[in-house]
Simulated assay, not measured.
Amino acid sequence: MNHSSQGRIPFGRPAIVGNEMEYIAQAIRNGTIAGGGPFMRRCEEWLENALAARRVLMTHSCTAALEMAAMLADVGPGDEVIMPSFTFSATATAFVLRGATPVFVDIDPATLNIDPALIEPAITERSKVVVPVHYAGLGCDMDPILDTARRKSLIVVEDAAQAHLSSYRGKPLGTLGDLGCLSFHETKNVISGEGGALIINNEALIERAEIIREKGTDRSRFFRGQVDKYTWQDIGSSYCPGEIVSAFLMAQLECADGICKRRREIYDMYRDLLAPLSMSGDIEIPSATGTDVNGHIFWILLESETVRSDLIQHLNRNDINAVFHYVPLHSAPAGRKYGRASGALSVTDDISSRLLRLPLYYKLSDREVHRVIDVIARFFGPKNR
């Protein structure tokens, strides 16, 4: 039976949730649509309050925030940056651009996050930064990571691209390390098309971060009246988001709690309804519940890459789009060229070949979730065994 009459269920779908159009019109009427305007500052204040963060600087992408973090960490040729291989290329490219070498370590099969026990064996006299990536909005085990970083004098940059409004032991992700990076790309929970933020938790880095974001000038101090003219002070780039993007994001931030609440509900529905297939051994599902994550991604693990491929085709035939995720960075052409692996990374290789992400977006209905589950269940029915 084909479900085409019910419409296709995409993997994701961006949504207008509040005052987006009104705020965009307001930004245009304000007479400034470049970066650094009132909507950008409102977004920063909202995030500082919501996350209890010392300073938040909006950026035009999470990649830009990571690039700023690499500059603030002063990494350069010969320096090493420890990170998981199971992540997006931007985690690595931000540091490679400064001449540093990514050192890839394996993940914990239970969380799909960097394995804290494998960080210390990867440390050399060249190690300067560790980058925990909070996969699918689930926090890394930060206490041992922060302990290792303190003992070994490493800077901690949290890649919290997927983790806006998730927390670890009551603290928002992105606020535990020296620096944290958020994404508001249209694939995330709270969106602005493209967009990001740098969370600065180490006070000593705030002033330099403002200079780096403003093309290496002290323009921020000039606008605050702290200097009578602004000049070139340091390296930097053009990292501010424009006002139209910030206006859209501000409307989304106002609805952020509701967006994440709905996504957590969908995440928990998937967990509950897929439990029988998990207990029968057909699939593995996350152990985390919606109270532990922000409902960004719901993944399942299949028995093999072949089964995954067959299930993707089966879902497609039934008008449902489910997708796999990263090609591990250590096995990618640029990963082999610019980075190196610490250890075997066998968990990363195994997980990446079997993982499948199911449709999950704010306006996905309960009925559509049931339809996805029904199609998956029929794949594992007697005729498919």
Rank of each mutant, 00 (worst) to 15 (best):
A122P: 05
C255P: 05
L329E: 10
L97D: 10
R371K: 03
D141L: 11
R151K: 15
V129H: 00
H370N: 12
P84F: 07
N202R: 14
A15D: 11
T87S: 15
K337A: 15
A204H: 14
L112A: 13
C260M: 10
V157K: 07
H325A: 09
M21Q: 12
G196W: 00
A117T: 08
C181V: 12
F324V: 14
H330R: 12
H370P: 06
L345N: 10
I283C: 05
I266T: 11
G7E: 09
A136Q: 08
A288C: 00
V156N: 04
Y326L: 10
N19M: 10
S352Q: 02
R208W: 06
D228F: 09
L182C: 05
H164K: 04
Q26A: 13
R354E: 09
S237H: 06
R98P: 11
G174H: 03
G177P: 05
F380T: 09
A70F: 00
Y338D: 01
M58E: 01
P172V: 05
N321G: 08
I199Q: 01
I119A: 03
V157D: 07
I285F: 02
K383V: 09
S167I: 07
S166H: 02
L356D: 04
I285S: 05
N30M: 09
P102E: 04
D268P: 07
E203F: 10
M269N: 13
L154C: 11
R378Y: 09
R208V: 01
R317I: 08
T111Y: 07
T91F: 01
Q6W: 08
D257T: 15
C255F: 11
R169E: 12
I300S: 08
G99Y: 00
E125V: 12
P121T: 07
L72G: 00
T91D: 01
G37Y: 05
L97I: 11
R98F: 01
R126T: 01
D366F: 06
Q162K: 07
V227E: 03
N294C: 10
R98T: 06
S85M: 04
R340D: 07
I16T: 14
Q162T: 11
N294F: 07
A100T: 05
Q26S: 15
P144T: 10
D143Y: 03
T291F: 03
D178H: 15
L118R: 13
L154I: 14
L358H: 02
L179Q: 05
I351G: 04
S309C: 09
M83A: 13
V372Y: 02
D234N: 12
D292C: 11
A64H: 01
F88R: 14
A344F: 03
K152H: 14
A92M: 09
A110N: 12
F298W: 02
S238V: 07
S166M: 04
S331V: 15
I16Q: 14
G99N: 05
A122E: 04
Y338E: 05
F380I: 04
R354P: 12
M250Y: 15
L176K: 06
R371W: 02
L57W: 00
D349T: 10
V372C: 13
T217S: 11
E67A: 01
P84N: 08
P172E: 08
S153E: 06
F222K: 04
T59V: 02
A65C: 02
